[in-house]
Every structure is written in structure tokens, then in C-alpha cells.
Design a protein around this nucleic acid. Sequence first.
DNA 1: GCCCTGACGCAAG
DNA 2: CCTTGCGCCAGGG
Length: 96
Amino acid sequence: MVSEELHERVREIIRSIPRGRVASYGDIAALASAPTPRLVGRILSEDGHDLPWHRVLRANGTPAPGLARRQLELLRAEGVLADGEKVSMREYRWRP
DNA sequence: GCCCTGACGCAAG
DNA sequence: CCTTGCGCCAGGG
């Protein structure tokens, strides 16, 4: 199990991503001092329903397979456009 | 216990 | 585009 403290830290950071911006799993992990970006994906999968989860992408700008449709749709709704399945990180990446 | 699988990543070659 | 190596963890296909 993941420490409750880290768990909440990750959630809080994701919550602070502004509309129209995105962050990578690695970005979140770094900000939360998480041991690995994969942990972020796991936390998100089991306890991310109430978070702006769609603003979290992989480092290359592609979304998680299987949720790609919904995710890109939600992003598009807030002005984040994708080229195919890839979002331009250079353009939309959130920097605290 | 062990192996596989997950919204589980990412950088380098 | 693909593969490899390193990183890390819980639940049960």
C-alpha cells in the first residue's frame, strides 16, 4: 500500500493543474517526490475519480490506452487540442 | 512464495 | 516506429 501522505500529496498536485493545461505522470511524481511515475498511474486508477485526471498524460503527450477517447474529449472541451492521439506538451504543459 | 498484470513511466538506443 | 533497462507496488486475471 502507498503511504497515505504521498497518496494525498499526489492528489493535491493533480487537483492544482489549471484548466487548459496538462502534466505528465513524471511531472506529478517529481513534484510529489514519488519514487516512480508509475505510482502516480496507480493512485490515479484507484482513487482519481474525483480529480481532473484527464489533465495527466504520458511524457510524450499521449493518453492512457482505453481511456484515450474520453480523455481527449474532455481536454478538447477546455481548449487542449490533440494531433491525432498526441497533445503538444511543449504548448500545454503546466509549470507551477 | 512466484508470475503476471495494471489508467501503473521514461529516457536512451 | 520498436526494444531495453531501470524504477516500483498491490492484487489475484
